[in-house]
Measured scan of single mutants.
Amino acid sequence: MALNTPQITPTKKITVRAIGEELPRGDYQRCPQCDMLFSLPEINSHQSAYCPRCQAKIRDGRDWSLTRLAAMAFTMLLLMPFAWGEPLLHIWLLGIRIDANVMQGIWQMTKQGDAITGSMVFFCVIGAPLILVTSIAYLWFGNRLGMNLRPVLLMLERLKEWVMLDIYLVGIGVASIKVQDYAHIQAGVGLFSFVALVILTTVTLSHLNVEELWERFYPQRPATRRDEKLRVCLGCHFTGYPDQRGRCPRCHIPLRLRRRHSLQKCWAALLASIVLLLPANLLPISIIYLNGGRQEDTILSGIMSLASSNIAVAGIVFIASILVPFTKVIVMFTLLLSIHFKCQQGLRTRILLLRMVTWIGRWSMLDLFVISLTMSLINRDQILAFTMGPAAFYFGAAVILTILAVEWLDSRLLWDAHESGNARFDD
Rank of each mutant, 00 (worst) to 15 (best):
W84E: 08
R231Y: 05
D367V: 00
S321V: 02
A70W: 15
F122G: 02
V121F: 11
W84C: 11
F341S: 07
D35I: 01
V102S: 10
F217L: 12
L234V: 06
V152T: 06
E161H: 12
L414N: 03
F369A: 02
A137V: 05
V210H: 14
L77M: 09
L290F: 04
T224G: 06
F238C: 05
L191N: 04
A196D: 08
V232P: 05
I96C: 07
S273Q: 04
L200K: 07
W92P: 01
D297P: 01
L149M: 05
Q7N: 12
Y241V: 06
L79E: 04
R216F: 08
D181T: 03
L283N: 04
G293E: 03
T9E: 13
L323H: 02
V406F: 09
F192E: 07
G142W: 02
G292N: 06
G105Q: 15
L409M: 10
Q264L: 02
L154S: 03
M304H: 07
R260N: 13
D35Q: 02
L230E: 08
I285E: 00
Y241D: 06
Q295F: 06
T402W: 10
D416F: 08
A128C: 12
A272I: 01
G146C: 04
R62Q: 04
I319G: 13
R225A: 12
L336N: 12
R294L: 10
D297Q: 07
N101I: 01
L23S: 10
E296W: 05
T327M: 10
A128I: 04
H418D: 14
L263V: 06
F238T: 05
P219M: 09
C236M: 00
I96K: 04
V189M: 13
T134I: 12
G171V: 06
M164K: 02
I199V: 10
T134Q: 08
G26T: 10
G113F: 06
I96F: 04
D114K: 14
F393A: 10
L353M: 12
M164V: 03
R258G: 02
A70Q: 15
W162D: 01
G127K: 01
L208M: 14
G396D: 01
L205C: 12
R247E: 15
P52N: 08
S411V: 08
T134C: 12
L200E: 11
V179Y: 02
L156H: 06
L130W: 05
S135Y: 01
Q180C: 14
V210W: 04
L153F: 01
W92L: 05
F369W: 08
K229W: 07
I316L: 08
L89M: 12
L276R: 00
P41A: 11
A268M: 02
K160E: 08
A223R: 08
T374K: 00
T349P: 13
H90S: 08
S193G: 14
E42M: 10
I177L: 15
Q345H: 11
I330E: 02
C251Y: 00
P390C: 12
I58E: 09
G173Y: 04
G20M: 09
G118C: 07
W214P: 00
T110D: 13
N281V: 07
R258N: 03
T202M: 15
R158A: 13
L132G: 04
L234Q: 08
I172Y: 03
I316R: 00
F369I: 03
M388Q: 12
E296T: 05
G173T: 03
D166F: 15
D27M: 14
S308A: 09
C233E: 00
F217N: 13
E407I: 12
I116S: 08
C31R: 00
C51G: 15
I400L: 03
V121Y: 08
M356Y: 11
E21Q: 13
N4F: 09
Q33Y: 13
I116E: 14
H184T: 07
L93T: 01
G26W: 10
L165F: 07
S286K: 00
I185W: 07
I8H: 12
E21D: 10
